[in-house]
Amino acid sequence: MADTKYTKDHEVVHIEDGNVAVLGITAYAQDALGDLVFVELPEVGASFEKGDEFAVVESVKTAAEVYTPVSGEIVEINDRLNDEPEAIKISLEEGWIAKIRMTDDSELDALMDEAAYNEYLETLD
């Protein structure tokens, strides 16, 4: 998936069409968090700068902020996570968090591709 990029904080971005990107978290993050009990979703229409917190994923004992790696406006959210937070683990197709219309797709250049991300994971203990 050449259109999928990763961050060091374990967010994943998949470029859907043109300037809309799907945001989620990686399998590594899902595993680290354990059983998810709640996902706090952003509001459609909300604008975020690169690096802003746009969602929170909660397990029983932790709450992790999810930061957007790209700036833009939220155009769609995954309502399913309201009732079924654990769906986040199925796949990015099922368990995406939000879709964002990017204002600057050059921000993607700073992110890792799958190979680079996997290499990065090797460096973590």
């Binding site: 009990v37 709640f38 909660e58 397990s59 029983v60 004992k61 932790t62 709450a63 902020e65």
Partner: peptide, 12 residues
């Protein structure tokens, strides 16, 4: 729902 609380969320 402890994740609302200070020992997890700290400044949030």
């Amino acid at each position: 729902l402890n994740t609302r609380e200070q020992h997890i969320r700290r400044e949030k």
